[in-house]
């Protein structure tokens, strides 16, 4: 592992899914932190200052959309890239995209991946976002 590994915050209420994201990314030498819902995600992000957040949408207590919105309102956390993972909306049946999330929540995730997530796509998306110029820079 590099001396100063990039930190990935994995947010999902389902242990299997957290496990999967970690297993997918661990060969790339990242450090990991986890949270089980949106509320915990915002707390962990403020405490750990991750370099990227991979977050589920459907979670108890606080969903991924709301957590994304709160992160983007936080002056110190708003630049952290966020990847949202989900299928379709439970209630609406609407298939979301990064753009529709922006329309819905007023904030746009850096990437939006459909479940079941393709591991190679997840790896490449994380890599790409970590090497991209910070948003707004």
């Amino acid at each position: 592992m590099p001396d100063n590994p990039k930190k990935v915050l994995i947010v999902d209420d389902e242990a299997d899914n957290r496990h999967f994201v970690r297993a997918t990314l661990e060969d790339d030498g990242y450090a990991f932190a986890t949270a089980k819902d949106g509320a915990e995600a915002v707390e962990r992000a403020a405490a750990d200052r991750p370099d990227i957040i991979v977050m589920d949408v459907q979670m108890p207590k606080k969903d991924g959309f709301t957590a994304l919105y709160e992160l983007r309102q936080h002056p110190d956390l708003k630049a952290i890239p966020v990847i949202l993972l989900t299928g379709i909306g439970r209630k609406t049946g609407v298939r979301f995209s990064a753009e529709s999330v922006q329309e819905y929540m007023g904030e746009k995730p850096d990437a939006f991946l459909d479940k079941p997530v393709d591991p190679d796509k997840l790896r490449s998306t994380v890599r790409q976002l970590l090497h991209a110029r910070p948003r707004g820079a």
Partner: peptide, 23 residues
């Protein structure tokens, strides 16, 4: 709504199977 609910359930299960197979 039923289809949306079902799709959500099935996609999560598929995610578990696909993730398990990957690991």
């Amino acid at each position: 709504q039923t289809l949306a609910g079902l799709t959500h359930c099935i996609k999560n299960i598929l995610q578990g199977i696909k993730g398990g197979a990957y690991i």
